[in-house]
Amino acid sequence: MAIRVLKPWLFIMPALLIYLTVIFFPAIYTFYLSFFSWNGVAPHKDFVGIQNYVDLIMNDSVFLRALKNNLQWTIGSLVFIMGTGLLLALLLNRKMKGRVLFRGVFYFPFVLSGIVVASGWAWMYNPTQGFINKVLELAGLDSWTHAWLAEPKTALYAVFVAALWQGVGQPMVLFLAGLQTIPADPYEAAIIDGAKKYQSFWYITLPLLRETFVIVIATTMIASMKVYDIIYGMTGGGPAESTQVLSSWMYYQTFRFANIGSGSAISLFLVLITMVVIIPYVLYTTRKSHL
C-alpha cells in the first residue's frame, strides 16, 4: 500500500526537484530581497520593508513609463500579433500551391534569437543606410524618412514592428492546428442553409477555436509581459528611457545600478501583474468551454 502511494511521487520527483531548485526557491529568495536595500556585494543587507515598492510607485517615473509601455505592448500583441497570426492561418489553411513553403517562411522568424532579430532590424532602421529609409527615398517619400529608433515618439512602435515580424509565426501555427481539427460538416451545412462566409467564420470557426484561443492569448500575454531581448538589442531602453519595459528596467536596476532590492521588487510586480491577468482569464475560458 505504501509503495502504491509513493510510486507517483517517485515519478514526479526529478521534475519537482528541478522546479523547486530553478524556479520556486529563487522566486522566494527574490521576494525576500525585495524588502532590503543591498548592492549585491556588501556583507550586510539593510531591511527597508515595503519602501522599495513605495519608491517604485511614488518616485520612479521610469518604472511607471515601463509599466505603461508593457501595457501598450500587451494590447498591441493581442491585437496585431495574434490578429495577424489568425489571418495568416486562415489564408494558409486553404488548398493552394506552396502553402507549406509559406507556412515555413512565416514561422521561420520565430525560431530566431531575439538579439539576431534586433540586430537585423536595427540596421534596417538606420537613418542613413537603412533599408526602410532607402525604400522611402526611392519611392519619392523623402519627407517620411526618419531616425526611427532615435526619436522617443517612434522608437517603441518601431521595435514593436520588429517583434510583430518575429512573433507572428507562433499564433499562426497554433491557429492552423486548431483549424485543421474543425470538421467540414458544419461548413457544408452552413452553405446549404445559405450562410455567408463571414457568418460561417463568426458562428462556426471562432466558437470551435475557443480552446486554441485560450492557449494563444495566454502565451501571447505572457510573452508580451516578459519582453526584453529585442528591446535591449535595438534601443537598450532608450532614447530617454522611452522604450523601457519592466524586464529591461529590472535588469538596469539590478545589474547596472546595483540596486538589488528595487530590481527584485520590479520582478515581483511583473509576476503579480502576469498572474492577475492570466489566471482569471484561463479559469474563465476553461470553465466556459466545459459548460
Rank of each mutant, 00 (worst) to 15 (best):
I192A: 03
W202S: 10
W121K: 06
R65F: 02
L270A: 06
W9R: 01
F31C: 04
F80C: 04
G140W: 12
F160D: 00
L156I: 10
Y198N: 07
Q253I: 01
I215Y: 02
V54Q: 13
M82G: 00
V48T: 11
R210E: 07
I204P: 01
S267I: 02
A223I: 07
M1Q: 10
M234V: 03
L91T: 08
G233Y: 01
L67S: 06
T219C: 05
P109M: 04
D46L: 11
Y252L: 06
L87V: 15
W148E: 10
Q129V: 08
T181D: 09
G261M: 07
V105H: 08
L270C: 02
N70R: 07
A223N: 15
Y53Q: 10
I204Y: 05
P43C: 08
G233M: 01
Q166M: 08
A163T: 08
N93Q: 02
T21M: 14
A27K: 05
R4M: 06
L156K: 10
T254S: 12
I18K: 04
L283Y: 13
N69A: 01
L67A: 12
V79Q: 07
A240H: 04
P127D: 03
I260G: 00
E151I: 12
L272V: 15
F36P: 04
Y125T: 05
F31P: 00
A162C: 05
L174I: 11
D229P: 00
Q170W: 14
W165V: 04
R4I: 09
M1E: 09
V173W: 07
R256L: 09
T219A: 10
Y125S: 09
I115T: 15
V79F: 14
M124P: 04
V100N: 14
V105Q: 07
L88G: 00
L208G: 00
S264N: 09
P26G: 06
L283K: 15
S247R: 08
A218T: 15
R4K: 13
L174R: 02
M58I: 14
Q129S: 05
V216P: 01
F255W: 12
A184N: 11
G263Y: 10
H146I: 11
L291S: 14
N126Q: 09
M234A: 01
A184H: 07
T286Q: 13
D60Y: 10
M124E: 05
D55E: 15
R256E: 08
D46W: 08
L179S: 00
V214Y: 00
V116W: 06
L17G: 07
Y32D: 09
I50L: 15
Q199R: 10
A122L: 11
P26D: 03
I273F: 12
L176D: 00
T145M: 14
E211W: 05
A2W: 14
L209V: 03
G194N: 06
H290T: 13
V62E: 10
G40K: 13
L283S: 09
R210V: 04
K196M: 05
F110M: 13
L92K: 02
P186R: 08
I273Y: 10
G98Y: 11
I75V: 15
G236R: 03
